[in-house]
């Protein structure tokens, strides 16, 4: 497995863990303990685990003696980033237009919706980029391709 595959797997695991723990924490608080939804939302603090994605360049360092990145790797990374942002854009427009249609043009929405859009966008971009990277390289190691 090459460096990009390892980083993609790491990001996938971190993102899945962050989202999974958040949903579990919210569900336990809301359904099991009967906490009001506005307080159970605190369970989404586990989203902060996504911050570990920023450690991937440190955890998976570049080797010193081998060729680490060639034109194929560049093409795969550009494809992954392009696909990730294209997906993010579609979902961002949906997230912007759906409340406007549902609540109406004269209504208001909580300011907390804005950071949720940002975090949701981060989640989508990291997730899609990792999936596309692994799909292009292969999901398992292939002698450091």
């Amino acid at each position: 497995m090459n460096r990009m595959q390892k980083i993609a797997w790491f990001n996938l695991i971190v993102v899945s863990l962050a989202l999974g723990l958040s949903v579990i924490a919210f569900s336990i608080g809301y359904f099991f303990f009967g906490v009001p939804a506005c307080q159970a939302v605190a369970g989404f603090g586990f989203i902060g685990i996504m911050g570990f994605c920023g450690l991937s360049p440190v955890l998976f360092r570049k080797g010193k003696s081998k060729v680490q990145f060639d034109e194929r790797d560049t093409a795969i990374q550009r494809k992954a980033v392009g696909f990730a942002y294209a997906t993010f854009w579609v979902l961002f427009v949906a997230a912007a237009m759906v409340p406007w249609f549902i609540i109406g043009p004269n209504g208001t929405i909580t300011t907390n919706y804005l950071p949720w859009m940002v975090f949701g966008g981060m989640f989508v971009v990291v997730l899609m980029q990792s999936i596309v990277t692994l799909n292009e390289y292969g999901w398992k190691g292939k002698d450091n391709e």
């Binding site: 004269n106 209504g107 208001t108 929405i109 300011t111 804005l114």
Partner: peptide, 26 residues
């Protein structure tokens, strides 16, 4: 990122924004 968090800090988490702000952002 900057726009969303600046708006959130300035207006405050307890307040709200007009829904027209969302399509304008897009």
């Amino acid at each position: 990122f900057l726009f969303c968090f600046l708006l959130w800090f300035i207006i405050g988490p307890e307040n709200s924004v007009p829904t027209i702000a969302l399509p304008l952002m897009a």
